[in-house]
Design a protein around this nucleic acid. Structure first.
Length: 121
DNA sequence: AGAATGACGTATG
DNA sequence: GCATACGCCATTC
């Protein structure tokens, strides 16, 4: 098992209830900001919904991969809503409010984060 | 063992 | 602003 997958799983498992993380952000957390694709890939290969809440891993847009998360789109929405995640649409999460920001606690940065700049950097 | 593919995101045309 | 191309690296056939 490559460290890549284990690291992804480890990060996803650490996503607190009521929070969501984007693939790109996780990729950046592991030091490979360009490898966002493989974050999800690792999840699929290690599909283990017991310890890997895939429904908390969403696109940058806040959309969920309903075709790959367990249960189904309805279950995902129910789980996320039950966890306190705000939904803008049936398939879009309020990233601005529910995005998992472990660093935010340290940076105490306002919600006016310039992600584009962070990404580009 | 080698080729193909794949849950994203950014850059460029 | 929309469409297309590329990059990244591991997993799978």
């Amino acid at each position: 098992m490559a460290e890549f997958s284990e690291r992804v799983l480890d990060i996803v498992k650490q996503i607190p209830r009521g929070k969501v993380a984007s693939y790109g952000q996780i990729a950046r957390m592991m030091g490979s900001p360009r490898s966002a694709r493989y974050v999800g890939y690792a999840l699929r290969g290690n599909h283990d919904p017991i310890v890997i809440p895939c429904h908390r891993v969403v696109f940058k847009d806040g959309r969920i991969c309903e075709g790959y998360a367990f249960g189904g789109p309805e279950v995902q929405r129910a789980l996320l809503e039950d966890e306190g995640v705000a939904f803008l649409d049936d398939m879009h999460i309020d990233m601005d409010a529910c995005l998992w920001q472990p660093e935010a606690d340290r940076l105490s940065r306002p919600p006016d984060i310039d992600w584009e700049k962070e990404m580009g950097l």
